[in-house]
Structure formats: structure tokens, C-alpha cells
Design a protein around this nucleic acid. Structure first.
Lengths: 226, 226
DNA sequence: ACCTGAACACCGTTCAAGT
DNA sequence: ACCTGAACACCGTTCAAGT
């Protein structure tokens, strides 16, 4: 478990990018995005804030690296299924669960377009869309629709978790509150919202998420071949 | 440029929630999310930071209110088309264009789940999904898929604009850079990403966005009736 | 009722100085 | 090469005091 040296062994490993990222994830998991500060980080690592800058460029770099660690492990789970639609569903669920466990990943992901974490997801989806037999010139549209949808849901989940934490509620209490507000809207102006206010209390995010994936896959299938 | 009085008429209106929101939008449009600070705001309004707190609760409240002003005007444009699919496309494009003009709206929206700005969008989509003849118990899935997708794209656009601004590039220079990085990825690990790297330079976000909407609408149609 | 502006408790980041 | 920690230039928010 030792990592660096200089002389011989020491109780704690010396500072390193990996150790910083690990500590960042712990902080983010423990207290959300607001929990990641250079002061908290340097305290946890028993060093000064300046030391961290020797290993990372800035806070944004740090957040992307932490995000990538989570995404990489979610995306590296080998897909059991050989059937592309099932593989896409599994992959999407893997993302959903990773973000459910680490809500801050949802917003970190959104803030790093084109960066490694997103490329990992893009690639996995892309390979399955190819396997699906989607013609080459339609692959990008299919993949980016799936990706945008996944990012959209991720961002919402992150925001829900963030607000719930801020208000000291758990997720279902928070949805209860939203549901109550919705059910008091003007029925002439907001008939649809009113009609789904009750659903908010009982719905299952994960099921809804899969339903959306299903809809997009169905659209892809109907657009090409069968 | 004088501001305050106490007696009769005055050149400028006195401070108000609306004036604060208006100034916030100007700040956000001009310098992005980082541009909205209570100091910049109070300078622009020729007052002290404390005065602003008389009219708004906190920064999050302010951001949601600014976001809502943009969304409200985008959603209040009456839809020309009576055909529900076309209306949904028009509505989605309205969102796309609003966020293109005010990129910060994309991330503000994501951070306010269940709040008024999102309810406005939800409602408009919901009414059209109903008009589409989707059975009642499938409406929520259809609407939330569309909404999540729109939010996902919005968030990405906001992030692209944010990063481009941060690096002093325009949007196409930024995409060029991403495209270059992607085209240097390992072909064994990232074959799909590599194959679409070139597309990034020439693609049209708006067209891609519509293609995604089209795919979801197609999925909805194929799932119900025809 | 509404505004002022100093003060508080934070931030991310830098940088001379140490080892 | 790597770490220290004080200092800088900011933040959002509060609150006594004013009108």
C-alpha cells in the first residue's frame, strides 16, 4: 500500500494525484459539491492548500478527475449481454446507479463536455448502436440522443439530491413538497402538471429512466429497418 | 445617473424585484454565470448589496427568477401549428434558441427541478402529448423523456458556451479543439469516438437536437397506436 | 418600508520560502 | 522535486444604523 518514498517507509503514503482524487470523492460523497474545498481537502490530507496545486491544475480539473474515476468504473463493468439493446439498457442503468450513489457526478459530467468521462460513455453507447445495425450516417444522431437523454436525467437527479440535502430532506420528502406545490397550481393554466402531481409521489425514477431509454431505442428501430 | 430621492419624481425607477432581475439577465448575458455577483449587481443598480436582499431571498432565488423570465417568454410564444408533433418540435426549438441566446439558462434550469421554469416547459409538452392521443398512463413517460432530453441538450450547450468563454474561444474553435483531441484517441479503445471526431467540426447542433426530438416522437408513435 | 455599507465567514489560487 | 502556509482578491450574506 505504500506509494512514494524518499527515504524508507512512512505511515501515510505521500501526496499524489490519486490520493487527492480519492479524498475528493470521499468529500463529495459525504457533503456534496459544497463539501469539496481546498481547505477541507488539505485538512483531510494533512497538508497545505498549496501542495494540492502541485498535483492538479485547478478545481475544475479536480472535479473532472473525480468524476472520471466514478464513470470509468461504471463503464468498465463488462456488459453481460450480447444483444445490443439489452447492452444499452444495462449501460444506461449502470450510469443511473453510479449517479444515484454519487449525485455530484451528474452535474460534474454536464460541466465537462467533450472530456474523458463523457467520451467513455459516448464510446460505449456508440459501439452498441453500431452493433444494432444503425446505418453509419444515422449513428451520430442515435448516439447523441441517447447521451443527451442520459445526461439530462443525470443532471436532474444531481439537482434533486443537491436540493434535498440543502433543505435537510430526504429525496421522497422533497418530491412530496414539489408534488404539493404542483397540486395547488391553477387548473386552467396547468392542467397537465396538475394531472401528474400525484404521480410524483409514487413514481420510480429508475423505471421512468428506463422507459425513456426504451422510447428512444424504439424510435431508432422504427427509423431504421424494423 | 442619480438614483434615489424621497420627494417627487426621479430619473430612474426605484429598486424592485423586476429591475433586479432585469439587471441580472444583462449581467449573465454579458459575462456568463461568473458575471452575476451581488457586487456587480449592486454597482449596476447603484445601490448596496444589502438592498438587493430586501427584494430577493438569495442568489439561487435570483438565478431561478432570471431563468424563469427567459423561459416564460420562450414558452408564451403561441404555437402556430395545430398538429401536435409539429407543435412539440416548435416548442423544443423555442427552448433551444432561448438557451442559445442565453446559455446560462441551460444550467440554471437544471439546478431548479420542479420549480416554475421547468413546470412551464412540462406543461406545454404535456398538453401536446395529450393532443397526440397518448394514453393517459403513458403520458408521463413520454413527457419526461422529452423533458429530460431537452434539459440534457440545454445543459450541454450551456457547458460548451461556458468553457468556450472561459478559454476565450468561440464555439466553433472550441469544437475544433475537442475534435482534435478525439481524433488522437487510441483506435483500439475508442473506435466509435474516433469515427465521429470529424463530424464534430461540421455538425449543426440545432439539426442534431431536432433529430433527437424526432427519434423520441417516433418512439412514442410506435409505442402507441401508430 | 426600504436602503446603506461595513463586517463576517468563507472561497480558489499564488508564491516566496522551506526541505 | 515536492511541500508549507501566509497572503491576495475575491465571494454570499448579515445586520446595525440610517431615512
Amino acid at each position: 500500500m505504500v506509494k512514494k518514498a524518499g527515504s524508507t517507509q512512512r505511515r501515510e503514503e505521500s501526496l499524489s494525484r490519486d490520493r487527492i482524487i480519492e479524498a475528493s470523492i470521499a468529500l463529495l460523497d459525504g457533503s456534496g459539491e459544497r463539501g469539496l474545498t481546498f481547505r477541507a481537502l488539505s485538512e483531510r490530507l494533512a497538508t497545505g492548500p498549496g501542495a494540492i496545486y502541485w498535483h492538479i491544475d485547478n478545481k475544475s480539473d479536480l472535479l473532472i478527475a473525480a468524476c472520471d474515476a466514478i464513470i470509468a468504473s461504471a463503464m468498465n463493468a463488462p456488459s453481460i449481454s450480447a444483444e445490443p439493446e439489452a447492452a444499452i439498457r444495462a449501460l444506461a442503468l449502470g450510469m443511473f446507479d453510479a449517479i444515484d450513489a454519487h449525485p455530484w457526478v451528474g452535474s460534474a459530467l454536464t460541466r465537462a463536455p467533450g472530456q474523458l468521462p463523457m467520451v467513455r460513455i459516448l464510446e460505449r453507447i456508440g459501439q452498441q448502436v453500431r452493433a444494432l445495425g444503425v446505418p453509419e450516417d444515422a449513428q451520430w444522431a442515435a448516439v447523441s440522443a441517447l447521451l443527451s437523454y442520459i445526461l439530462g436525467v443525470s443532471g436532474q437527479n444531481a439537482a434533486n439530491a443537491h436540493i434535498a440535502r440543502e433543505q435537510g430532506l430526504d429525496r421522497s420528502n422533497f418530491l412530496d413538497e414539489v408534488s404539493t406545490v404542483w397540486s395547488e397550481l391553477d387548473p386552467n393554466e396547468y392542467p397537465f402538471t396538475l394531472s401528474v402531481a400525484g404521480l410524483l409521489r409514487v413514481h420510480d425514477d429508475r423505471v421512468d429512466f428506463l422507459a425513456g431509454i426504451h422510447l428512444i431505442l424504439r424510435g431508432i428501430a422504427s427509423a431504421h429497418g424494423r
